[in-house]
């Protein structure tokens, strides 16, 4: 697995240990501490926006987007949301909006988990928010792992679009190398456009579904 994912899990586990042992708690920063995650969230959204906007290839990517190529990220998002809703309601026992919020992480585990953990706190309470954030983190890490490990089989069984769809937001990121390898060079523009569009949809969709 990639260094980034291992480090992410390590930071999260470190936080868990600090919280469990009582070394750190949310009150340790006083009044400012309670609002700190909310400020961080706004800073994070602004920074993610800057990274999207300042992408040197943004113009090229936008130009290469035909309406037809956009169908791939569209069905990727729709398929993910539909099946996440089914599995979330029938198997996990979550409500529709919560299931959709977890699904709309699209493999972008770091952003979606902190967004859900923070945004759900007001409406669902700290406990359910923390639980949903954890499930979102794990779900989207699993998704990335499935894609990295399963890309050759997905491609053979379901065609060259399958690893791109499975990768979701990580198609132009961590999963890009395996997609190019198994789906082939000719799938490069599809992976880039789909990855970028799914990536950009995460902040929108997650905050949208968390508002219910």
């Amino acid at each position: 697995m990639m260094k980034g994912t291992v480090f992410t899990v390590a930071v999260f586990v470190l936080g868990c240990i600090a919280g469990w042992s009582g070394l750190a708690d949310m009150e340790m920063f006083g009044d400012a501490g309670r609002d700190l995650p909310m400020y961080l969230l706004y800073i994070l959204m602004f920074l993610v926006g800057i990274s999207v906007g300042s992408n040197p290839d943004l113009k090229k990517i936008v130009k290469s987007v035909s309406p037809k190529i956009l169908l791939l990220p569209l069905v990727t998002v729709l398929g993910t949301l539909a099946f996440s809703a089914l599995a979330g309601i029938l198997i996990a026992g979550y409500g529709l909006a919560d299931s959709l919020a977890i699904g709309s992480g699209m493999g972008y585990y770091s952003l979606s988990s902190v967004l859900i953990g923070q945004l759900k706190e007001a409406s669902a309470g700290a406990q359910l928010a923390a639980e949903l954030g954890t499930v979102a983190l794990l779900t989207n890490i699993f998704r990335e792992m499935f894609t990295l490990v399963g890309a050759p089989l997905l491609c053979r069984w379901f065609g060259p679009f399958a690893p791109i769809a499975s990768a979701g937001a990580t198609a132009f990121d961590v999963c890009f190398p395996v997609i190019v390898r198994y789906s082939g060079d000719r799938m490069l523009p599809y992976a880039i456009v789909s990855g970028v569009v799914c990536d950009m949809s995460v902040p929108f969709l997650v905050s949208f579904f968390c508002s219910f």
């Binding site: 791939l72 398929g79 979330g88 299931s99 679009f161 399958a162």
Partner: peptide, 23 residues
Amino acid sequence: LGLRAFVLAVAGVAGSVILSMLL
């Protein structure tokens, strides 16, 4: 929670992969 996450991940992958194949 881990098990739920696993199921949700399989579902998300399955849904997107099936639609992408049809497309």
